[in-house]
Design a binder for these strands. Structure first.
Length: 958
RNA sequence: GCCGGUGUGGCGAAAUGGCAGACGCACAGGACUUAAAAUCCUGGGACCAUCAAAAGUCGUGUGGGUUCGAGUCCCACCACCGGCACCA
């Protein structure tokens, strides 16, 4: 039919392009289209990858039970093999479906899960859905379709795609954050946070009932207010990041350069009543415990920077008395001049402080401003308040500010210094006020230059050639002598210590540690999130106070709505459901919902015991999978090479985009749960690896607008899941960013074809192909049964050379899997196959072992061939995924002849073959006798001969 | 600006301080075929030279250093990627 159409006509016709592409790639290398569904069904039906908890009964005949002698028994923590918890960051099930980036990490973890199973571990490898999220809600706003409907359809599609890749997940533990049975416990954990406070003395969270009230709290209202101010989940009226476009507030972490991380919309600051989580109480632990976990340096560094610990001192400045007369603020006692506290990391530069700067929002501004400056100050405050975050960062180059008219007294020398207002000082950091040392701080220097403020040197750079102006490093203090204290001549660190001690002694300040980390803004004005289990009550005076729902009221379901838009007046969508909001006793429900991060903060714990209806996780399961069975609580740093199971998740793989959001939040929740005795480890994720980004074929980031997105479904259809998995790993190291190249898939696909042809009989393949086209055989299994084993495979003892090839491969694959070097493991298997293709007789033992190595990477093909092999040779059936991992025999790899390079002055001149046992003098003699090397040193003086046995000989001559 | 990472053929990449470029892609030549596809075999860093080959020289971002020997270790710099960015 097509043969009559000129080829050029076909090519130019878009309708034929697809069929041409199929023609170009030719016939299938092997029938993956039959093999892959076959084994996926088999694993599903047999629950092959179900992980067993302590207390579970291992079904009779389950391969895990057969391997570990647990068939039909109730497993106990002590009788189960060591655990290995290998976790993927669960995806948000978007409408767009899977992306080739998702399966990269999933393939890596699946390979390791399968490898660990073969190594005899009890492997926990689960998958679930981070299914709350904005897209489903935006779709609901547009169409009125309930987000749950959208979400379920997306989950179904993601499940189909993920299952088609043959991953060995334990689907019996599948979870979705939108499932009421799941978010019941998310709300439960919120109540734990709500009902806890952080005790600075014990340095841990405790139930709120243990809170000690100060003596000043006498009335019930005062006690309530005090209690509410100490909760780990509290209400704040502070300015928040409001994104008008998204109609919600955002956490600091979700705002990038003044725009929303999702969508890139402008964000403005707006005071609103919001729920906050007191993550700052954990700043120190979150920082310190980074040293106990095995994460990449870059990731740890990102978290350290985000937490932003800085040591310094708070210093108190008196407002100079004269200014009190003319000040604007009324009703305060003029005999009690105000004090301003500043935070500085450089108390040693105190003598160089030539002015103070308050943030425009500082609460003392009104009181200290003089009448003459009042208007200018108020104008400036308005100007600063009107700036969005975006403008504040974009206009950062040019400093702005205004003089308040007030003066402060420098405590070390009594100097009168002006007090200014400027928005380069942030209200939310430190005390919201600074002492400006223009000589030794870049920002202060810029400001002082612009407003002609004095610059006084107080630090001498160690290198006398360095200009002291703008010198911000450590040096020697100069010009730093006052009536009571002198630090002149001291090195910076010593000067800091001395002056801080003096300030403390005088009651003028103290050493302080500040963090960049802010409390976590935890409420969102959205529909599709967990409702807060909180109601608001009004007392007789009309004051609102919040109260937690009892645990028995969980899960608190969101109401059903017709319209998902924010309610009129900017209220969250939940406020539309009047019946739901108003309760019979006159109280009203909280209408904010939790952010998407809430569900992902603890999902790794739910997997441990996903169907538990009595607890968020059962104690025994938690201890077993988190590696603390036996009561050993892993709060202390784990010494290198410590025995026993890893505390926490053994391996967590996901993208870097979660470096400071999810990973910091989850660590925080985990630490609270640890303090409250709910979990047994101080850290959730012991080892964490970030997979690199996969770029499009054009080397650009994949995106719909660039049109370079690769859909896994297309690749699977053409090359199969095994080839897809193999390619994703063969591209390069897991952590690197690398471009996709479909031609590369063809390469690994050809490799799998070679594996297939090594095992099967060519003639039977022809029969199979004919049967397939004429449908002689009716079903998949009888079609596949037509494929016979290659007759050159025999039950014979491998030759030493064959054994060497095999064991070199076992060694390389094993070591590379331990080091997560998947790409080189695959190339080792390619080397083996290239070699084995040349064998005239193929020993069945060697091929069996090879399939065990291949199984983690390309499990479907390996299973099919394994079972064919066993049937053909009448071997007692063994389940491939649970067959013990091959061991390599170093004795087999020993050569008696090896090639040794001969160098002259470090340059290669020849390669000689010598006995493995050649001694140093023998090697020396052989090298000197070498004719090719001779010309390069003849006529020169032999200085020495370097001989590294089994490595090389180097003749050094001058 | 600060912090972290990466620089190796046409491309993805590989190399406990010891033969740079394994393995794969793309390419070229050959075998099989009426022809193609598929498959199998062979080749290949650059330069110089040549009918051809051998031999030679240079080569891991740049410049120095350590070493018998450096892609690998040290110092300085350049480029790209990622993160943070008025945090006092």
């Amino acid at each position: 039919m097509q043969g009559q159409i000129p080829k050029s006509a076909i090519v130019s016709h878009p309708h034929f392009r697809n069929s041409l592409r199929l023609m170009a790639s030719g016939r299938r290398q092997y029938p993956f289209h039959l093999i892959e569904p076959k084994w996926q069904q088999h694993w599903d039906q047999h629950q092959s990858f179900r992980a067993f908890n302590p207390g579970d009964t291992v079904p009779e005949g389950h391969p895990f039970g057969l391997r570990h002698q647990l068939s039909g028994q109730a497993a106990r923590a002590e009788s189960l093999p060591p655990k290995f918890y290998i976790l993927d960051m669960f995806p948000y099930p978007s409408g767009a479906g899977l992306h080739v980036g998702h399966p990269e990490g999933y393939t890596a973890t699946d390979i390791l899960a399968r490898y660990r199973r073969a190594r005899g571990f009890n492997v926990l490898h689960p998958m679930g859905w981070d299914s709350f999220g904005l897209p489903a809600e935006q779709y609901a706003v547009k169409t009125g379709q309930h987000p749950r409907v959208t979400t379920e359809a997306n989950i179904a599609n993601f499940t189909r795609q993920i299952k088609s890749l043959g991953f060995s997940y334990d689907w019996s533990r599948e979870l979705a954050t939108t499932d009421p049975e799941y978010f019941k416990w998310t709300q439960w954990i919120f109540l734990k946070l709500y009902n806890s406070c952080f005790d600075p003395e014990t340095n841990r969270a405790q139930p709120i009932e243990t809170l000690k009230f100060p003596l000043t709290c006498t009335t019930e209202e005062q006690r309530r207010a005090y209690r509410d101010s100490k909760r780990l989940a509290y209400v704040s009226e502070a300015p928040v990041n409001w994104c008008p476009e998204l109609g919600t507030v955002l956490a600091n972490e979700e705002v990038i350069d003044g725009r929303s991380e999702v969508g890139g919309f402008p964000v403005i600051r707006k005071p609103m009543r919001q729920w906050m989580l007191r993550i700052t109480a954990y700043a120190e632990k979150l920082l310190a415990d980074l040293d106990t976990i095995d994460w990449s340096d870059s990731l740890k560094e990102m978290q350290r920077n985000w937490i932003g610990r800085s040591e310094g001192a708070e210093v108190e400045f008196q407002i100079a008395a004269q200014t009190c007369d003319g000040r604007a603020g009324a009703g305060t006692d003029p005999l009690q001049p105000e004090k301003i506290r500043v935070f500085t990391t450089r108390p040693d530069t105190l003598f160089g402080a030539t002015y103070l700067v308050l943030s425009p929002e500082h609460k003392l501004v009104g009181q200290i401003t003089t009448a003459a400056q009042q208007k200018a100050v108020e104008d400036y405050q308005r100007f600063a308040a009107g700036k969005s975050d975006l403008e504040r960062t974009e206009l950062a180059k040019e400093k702005t500010g205004v003089f308040t008219g007030a003066y402060a007294l420098n405590p070390v020398n009594g100097g009168r210094i002006p007090v200014w207002l400027a928005d380069y000082v942030l209200a939310s950091y430190g005390t919201g006020a600074i002492m400006a040392v223009p000589a030794h701080d870049t920002r202060d220097f810029e400001f002082a230059t612009k407003f002609h403020l004095p610059v006084v040197q107080v630090v001498q750079p160690p290198d006398s050639k360095t200009d002291w102006q703008g010198f911000t490093d450590h040096g020697i203090s100069v010009n730093s002598t006052g009536p009571e204290i002198s630090i002149t001549g001291l090195a910076t660190s010593e000067a800091k210590r001395k002056i801080t001690d003096w300030l403390a002694e005088k009651g003028l300040g103290q050493a302080t540690i500040n963090y960049k980390l802010r409390d976590w803004l935890f409420s969102r004005q959205r529909y599709w999130g967990e409702p807060f289990p909180i109601v608001w009550k009004k007392d007789a005076a009309g004051n609102l106070s919040h109260e937690a729902l009892p645990e028995s009221a969980l899960p608190l379901l969101p109401p059903s709505l017709q319209d998902y838009k924010p309610a009129p007046g900017g209220e969250p969508p939940l406020a539309r459901a009047k019946d739901w909001v108003s309760l019979p006793d006159g109280s009203v429900r909280e209408t904010n919902t939790m952010p998407q991060w809430a569900g992902s903060c603890w999902y790794y714990l739910r997997y441990l015991d996903a169907r538990n209806t009595d607890a968020f996780v059962g104690k025994e399961s938690e201890c077993y999978w988190m590696g603390t069975t036996g009561g050993a609580v892993a709060s202390a740093p784990r010494p290198a090479g410590a025995a026993g199971p890893t505390p926490g998740v053994d391996l967590y793989v996901g993208g870097t985009e979660h470096a400071v959001l999810h990973l910091l939040y989850a660590r925080f929740w985990h630490k609270v749960l640890f303090d409250l005795g709910q979990v047994s480890t101080a850290e959730p994720f012991f080892k964490l690896v970030n997979q690199g980004l996969i770029l499009g074929e054009d080397g650009q980031k994949m995106s719909k607008s660039r049109g370079n997105v690769v859909n896994p479904d297309d690749i699977l259809g053409e090359y199969g899941a095994d080839a897809f998995r193999l390619y994703e790993m063969f591209m390069g190291p897991l952590q690197e960013t690398k471009p996709w190249n479909t031609k590369g898939v063809e390469g690994v696909y050809r490799f799998l074809g070679r594996v297939w042809r090594l095992f099967v009989d060519e003639n039977s393949e022809t029969d199979f192909e004919q049967a397939e086209t004429t449908a002689e055989a009716s079903d998949r299994d009888s079609l596949l049964a037509l494929i016979k084993l290659n007759p050159t495979i025999r039950d014979v003892t491998p030759t030493p050379a064959q054994l060497k090839t095999l064991h070199a491969c076992i060694k390389k694959v094993t070591e590379d899997l331990d080091g997560m070097r998947f790409n080189t493991a695959i190339s080792a298997m390619m080397v083996f196959i290239n070699e084995a293709m040349t064998w005239e007789t193929k020993p069945v033992e060697a091929l069996k072992t090879f399939l065990q190595l291949l199984q983690p990477f390309s499990p479907h093909l390996a299973e099919e061939l394994w079972n064919k092999l066993f049937a053909a040779f009448n071997l007692p059936l063994a389940d491939l995924p649970y067959s013990p991992w091959p061991r390599f025999d170093p004795a087999v790899l020993i050569e008696n002849k090896i090639e040794i390079p001969v160098q002259v002055n470090g340059k290669l001149r020849d390669v000689i073959t010598v006995s493995i046992s050649a001694t140093v003098p023998q090697l020396e003699a052989l090298a000197l006798a070498n004719e090719k090397a001779k010309p390069y040193y003849e006529g020169k003086t032999l200085k020495k001969i370097i001989v590294v046995p089994k490595k090389l000989v180097n003749i050094v001559a001058v």
